[in-house]
């Protein structure tokens, strides 16, 4: 059997606001990938929504580019909103 394409699986939990990457699987097409994701990654009642995407459709940054991409942000502490005092009655912070 020639190998089925690899899919990456994202699941949104009951309380979650966004889909979280949980793993990958093989499937012949998108519909099968969704069903396989249900069977493999939501067995313990984790999810209310599933996204699947073919792994080869994801453009990823290369580890070689790590420094040019991310190092410049390292010393820009003023970009964090940590210099404000948060009032006690502001929720979800």
């Amino acid at each position: 059997m020639s190998e089925w394409p690899l899919y990456e699986v994202f699941v949104r939990g009951k309380r979650g606001l966004n889909h979280v990457h949980v793993g990958s699987l093989h499937a012949a097409d998108d519909a099968m990938a969704l069903h396989n994701a249900r069977d493999v990654y939501t067995r313990r009642n984790e999810g209310v929504s599933i996204w699947v995407v073919r792994a080869d459709a994801i453009a990823a940054s290369s580890p070689d580019e790590k420094d040019p991409l991310f190092a410049p942000a390292g010393d820009k502490v003023y970009r964090h909103p940590t210099f404000y005092s948060i009032p006690d009655d502001v929720p979800h912070m």
């Binding site: 699941v11 949104r12 009951k14 309380r15 793993g23 009642n45 984790e46």
Partner: peptide, 14 residues
Amino acid sequence: NAYADLLGSDDAHW
């Protein structure tokens, strides 16, 4: 743990 955020603490979903 990718699942940590998914489960929540509410056991009622069982």
